[in-house]
């Protein structure tokens, strides 16, 4: 088993938390995993992305130039990373902020999910990242959804602990929508 993904968006969209959740869930699933953040010098508001690699074998590079999968939480991320996506790869597009028609559906599999709209419906607009990760595991089968839900309590900061049930809902809603 091997899977990799670049998760990208604006700073503040929770890209790092999304990647950490996936990576932690993969560890709980007994896999090897690497999580590599890439960040601009800005603390907030800049672009952010991270790379997660999952494998049942030893992992070499934590840096991936041609990923199998991309999660694009906004339009600049879609435009940038779909070009890197391997042929036949999957991109999960946050269709609330980026038109899935911009993706090259002849070359890659495009899964459009209105993450912002779904997050608002769940009741917390900031859970765009969770909706997207729910959609990601549905679209790729990389991990069971339950693993992500179980990992929430390990990666959500303690002072947001009360939001864990909502995060789980958001994961489920994204999963159902994909």
């Amino acid at each position: 088993m091997y899977a990799d993904v670049i998760i990208a968006g604006f700073g503040g969209q929770g890209v790092v938390l999304a990647g950490t959740l996936l990576a932690y869930a993969a560890m709980e699933h007994g896999l090897n995993v690497t999580f590599m953040p890439v960040y601009g010098p800005e603390m907030r508001g800049g672009t952010a992305n991270c790379t997660v690699v999952l494998s049942d074998e030893e992992i070499g590079s934590p840096i991936i130039r041609r990923p199998q999968n991309v999660v694009a939480l906004n339009r600049p991320s879609l435009e940038k990373f779909q070009l890197q996506l391997a042929d036949g790869g999957t991109v999960v597009v946050n269709s609330s902020l980026a038109d899935p028609a911009l993706a090259d559906s002849a070359r890659i599999k495009v899964v459009g999910v209105p993450c912002n709209d779904i997050a608002e419906k769940v009741g917390n607009a900031r859970m765009v990242n969770m909706v997207a990760m729910g959609a990601f595991v549905k679209a790729t089968g990389a991990l069971p959804l339950e693993r992500l839900k179980q990992a929430l309590s390990h990666v959500v900061p303690a002072h947001y602990g009360h939001l864990i049930p909502k995060n789980a809902e958001a994961l489920q809603a994204g999963y159902d929508a994909a």
Partner: peptide
């Protein structure tokens, strides 16, 4: 920086 910043089990 790769080793310092990356996360692994």
């Amino acid at each position: 920086a790769i080793l310092g910043q990356m996360k692994e089990p």
